[in-house]
Design a protein around this nucleic acid. Structure first.
Length: 846
RNA sequence: GCGGGCGUGGUGGAAUGGUAGACACACCAGACUUAAAAUCUGUUGGGCGUAUGCCCGUGGGGGUUCGAGUCCCCCCGCCCGCACCA
């Protein structure tokens, strides 16, 4: 009798897999390929339970597909550029490069004991010059194809530190270090022309059947296709017409004022002429650049004194206001406000005492509108435009079409389609990113670097003792010769958004050592990613950028036509959460405690009772973290893998509990013990119930296979518990039990591969279980002779009926009526309705 | 503010529109033990009832349906994203 020793068997089998190179992805044109990819990690320093869950899910799919005979690609890399490395350099000294590569080394060593079926030979980090050099090469290709351009855009500016801030570095409108009020400032920046692909990125969503519907919907709303009316308001002072775009032209009769963004050209012009307006616009520009900050800021307005004529009635003049809630990035940066039917406009008009006019009815006053904007279903009658009367304005469609036609016929407006999607700004005024490979030449202007000079490497000799981009103050790095005319010139010091790095890494994994961004032969074989797995937080930006990038790479010849849409299937997994343990200090401030320091609701060290706050995402600041390394040391990787998949559906959050992890460990012990027991059995003992055991096992094969295919890992585990209990109680003979435990090991092998290998070896399985073909359920063993159907009376379960599985609907109907419970309910009468769904349910309506 | 999602026992959760609570945790009871641990077995949504059984129950309110946790509408609460966090 031996004992289950996770550490022993796990290192043993990991060594065996390495020896046999079983996870090395091999391009084999005779085999169908399967590419499974989990979103690669940022090397923050240590792995966390979220990583364990994410990579275990991918590993289950990879191992399962491998057993099904696919040639599997399952790689791993590092999303290694980004702010935290620079922050660390500022906070603790050192260099972002050292910090990043040290973290990668640590995390790789923490990840390997998990026994993931990863082809480590393909590993790379996005901060490797071999990677970002290829990215620079593609940037030049994109430039050549007109997919990149420069324009002005606003950034968060910290006026004290004199530096650009990321949104994350703006806290309540102030710079996180200086505390200064942040301002919006314009800079010339590089942009990808993703907006040219709005329509295509939208239409292609229809083909992504294996993406979650919610992600497709979020992308659809983000791209934001809308049909509306564009028209100009003529100014009474003869100034330039103010163009407005509206998706609700039917509300034009309720116009109260015309509003322009503080960043609108007219506002900018007025700013230079009028000190009061300049002060107002400056006030509007305070605060961060996020849509959230702008749209939730208290509403501010300024009457410019400009008047415009209403297009339906030239005698009706509307004032032009500058309003802080109008975004320059959407539409034309100018709107007309209809306060009666738009809550935001109404709030603004109430604040500044502007008129509120009902657009859909004849009354000219605002009596029906108090503080709640109204949206009627149909118009009654409308001033000046009989044409608009009786319109269905509930959805906007009929209203838009009718009003657009009207405006086009009258010649003062045009129907246009607009997208909310903006071009992707990729310039970052930071050091730790991929340098943008262009040169600013006094003669030639902006010139791309020559490809033979790539990669443009980041210089190592930089300091982080003051805020700002160290590349800007580096004594020599900027200096170079113009690639075109040879004149002394300056390099671009902006680096690329890290989303660029993560927009094509999946393609690079197909040929990580290629001297070009990709190798078309390899990409043709391995692309697309068959299953992509990651967090829902990437639903829009990362996934949309990657979809754009694949198209752009295709245009430049870096991806084949089969890889324009890079991810065939997407799964968004939930987080790992944990309770939070908190006490209070003498000033009543919360003090958080690590789970390992708490037992039975008390601090182990002092016995003090802790307050338990419901489970939340694991975070260092709340200390509700469990280190996977500790769990692996205590219970082994198989236990950790089993538990993160067991308790919740993969798309939902899972709560880590110590008792749950222990239960998982106990269960794996039990399986081990059962295997040992079977191994010790006497061959000659006559067993009974062999057939029942094998029927149960084959039912499990079918169910678990379906569960794995559909990401029902928790359901698969519930069935594994079930079949283990059946096997444990079975009195079957050794041969049947041995067959059963071998199949159980195979069904467990994607989840707990080490334990599965060990059982397989003990029971005399041939070769590695990892390489054994996935078991197939014997359909003959799945057929049931009889079925038990519930009988409902008026939709409530009252009885049940055990009948042969092949009984016809008519026979069942007759039989049902003879049942006691039914007879009682009918009280001699006839049922109003009798519903029989064979194999499912019977409902008698009386 | 806008977009998306979630809400089921003491807890995590299960349930192609078809027996609500699978599986697991926790609790309780029992077996084994001098005892404990470990292990094994059993009970466990609430209420009424000796019992066959009956009533209630999936955040709240309404609707569709023979039948709703599931579909539709409204409301409440929580979570995620909002373009320079990764």
């Amino acid at each position: 009798m031996s004992r289950y020793s996770a550490s022993e068997i796990e290192s043993k089998w990991q060594a065996a897999w390495n020896e046999a190179e079983v996870f090395k992805a091999k391009r084999d044109d005779a085999k169908e390929k399967y590419y499974v990819l989990e979103m690669f990690p940022y090397p923050s320093g240590r792995i966390h339970m979220g990583h364990v869950r994410n990579y275990t899910m991918g590993d289950v799919v990879a191992r399962y597909k491998g057993s099904c005979g696919f040639s599997v690609l399952h790689p791993m890399g590092w999303d290694a550029f980004g702010m935290p490395a620079e922050n660390a350099a500022m906070a603790i000294g050192g260099h972002p490069k050292t910090w990043t590569y040290d973290n990668i080394a640590t995390m790789r060593e923490q990840m390997k004991p998990l026994g993931l079926s990863i082809d480590w030979s393909r590993e790379f980090a996005t901060c490797d010059p071999e990677y970002y050099g290829q990215q620079q090469s593609m940037f030049i290709d994109f430039l050549d194809k007109g997919l990149v351009y420069r324009k002005n855009a606003v950034v968060n500016w910290d006026p004290v530190d004199m530096t650009v801030l990321a949104n994350e570095q703006v806290e309540a409108g102030r710079g996180w270090r200086s505390g200064a009020l942040v301002e919006r400032r314009e800079l010339t920046q590089w942009f990808f022309k993703i907006s040219d692909y709005s329509e295509e990125l939208l239409d292609a969503l229809d083909g992504l059947d294996n993406w979650p519907a919610k992600v497709r919907l979020m992308q659809e709303n983000w791209i934001g296709k809308s049909r509306g009316l564009q028209f100009g308001f003529e100014r009474t002072d003869g100034g330039e017409t103010i163009d407005v775009y509206t998706t609700r032209p039917d509300t034009l009769n309720g116009a109260s004022f015309v509003g322009i963004s503080p960043d609108h050209p007219i506002a900018k012009q007025l700013e230079t002429e009028n000190a009061e307006i300049a002060a107002f616009v400056a006030e509007c520009r305070k605060g961060g650049t996020t849509a959230e900050a702008i749209e939730t800021a208290p509403k501010l307005g300024y009457d410019t004194g400009i008047k415009v004529k209403h297009p339906l009635n030239p005698d009706w003049e509307l004032p032009v206001w500058i309003a802080n809630f109008i975004l320059m990035d959407y539409g034309t940066g100018a709107i007309f406000a209809c306060p009666a039917h738009d809550q935001r406009d109404l709030d603004f008009c109430r604040k500044y005492d502007l008129p509120v006019k009902n657009a859909f009815f004849l009354q000219d006053d605002d009596t029906p509108v108090a503080d709640q904007a109204l949206v009627p279903a149909k118009t009654e009658a409308v001033r000046w435009v009989d044409h608009f009367a009786g319109l269905d304005v509930s959805t906007g469609d009929e209203a838009i079409n009718t009003t657009v036609d009207f405006a086009e016929n009258a010649g003062w407006g045009t129907g246009v389609t607009k997208f909310r999607l903006r071009d992707w700004g990729l310039s970052r005024q930071r050091y730790w990113g991929c340098p943008i490979p262009v040169v600013h030449c006094p003669n030639c202007g902006v010139v791309p670097e020559k490809k033979e000079n790539l990669p443009i490497r980041l210089p190592d000799d930089v300091t982080f003792d003051k805020p700002g981009n160290p590349l800007d103050r580096h004594p020599t790095w900027r200096d170079c010769a113009c690639p075109s005319c040879g004149t002394p010139a300056k390099r671009e010091t902006d680096t690329m958004d890290t989303f660029v790095d993560s927009s094509w890494y999946y393609a690079r994994f197909t040929a990580p050592d290629a001297k070009t961004p990709t190798d078309l032969a390899e990409a043709s074989y391995w692309m697309n990613v068959d299953q992509y797995i990651g967090g829902i937080e990437h639903a829009i930006l990362h996934l949309l950028y990657s979809r754009f990038f694949a198209r752009a790479m295709n245009i430049c010849g870096h991806l084949p036509d089969n890889a324009v849409e890079p991810f065939n299937a997407l799964f968004t997994q939930g987080m790992v959460t944990h309770e939070i343990y908190q006490t209070r200090d003498d000033k009543d401030r919360p003090v958080y405690h690590l789970p390992e320091d708490v037992e039975n609701g008390k601090l182990i060290a002092t016995g003090e009772t802790v307050e338990i706050i419901p489970s939340a995402k694991m975070s260092k600041s709340k200390k509700n973290v469990v280190d996977p390394v500790n769990i692996i040391n205590a219970f082994g990787a198989d236990t950790a893998r089993w538990f993160v998949l067991s308790d919740s559906p993969p798309e939902r959050d899972v709560e880590w509990t110590a008792s749950g992890a222990e239960a998982a460990y106990k269960h794996l012990n039990r399986v081990w013990t059962i295997s040992d027991k079977i191994d010790q059995m006497d061959e000659s003992t006559i067993g009974k119930g062999d057939g029942d055991l094998l029927r149960a096992v084959h039912k499990a094969i079918k169910g678990i296979t379906q569960d794995i295919e559909s990401f029902g890992f928790n359901a698969a585990i519930a069935k594994l518990y079930g079949i283990t209990a059946v096997l444990n109680k079975s009195k079957a003979g050794k041969a049947a039990q041995q067959e059963a435990i071998k199949i159980l090991a195979q069904l467990m092998s994607p989840i707990t591969p080490h334990l599965a290998e060990d059982i397989w070896a003990q029971q005399g399985g041939s070769g590695l279980i990892t390489l054994a073909p996935w078991p197939i359920a014997d359909e003959k063993l799945l057929i049931e002779d009889s079925v038990t159907m519930p009988i409902q009376i008026n939709g409530k379960r009252r009885s049940e009926l055990k009948i042969p599985a092949d009984m016809s609907k008519e026979e069942i109907e007759k039989l049902v009526l003879t049942q006691d419970a039914v007879q009682k309910a009918l009280a001699g009468g006839q049922p109003k309705k009798l519903i029989v769904v064979p194999g499912r349910i019977i409902n008698v309506v009386v």
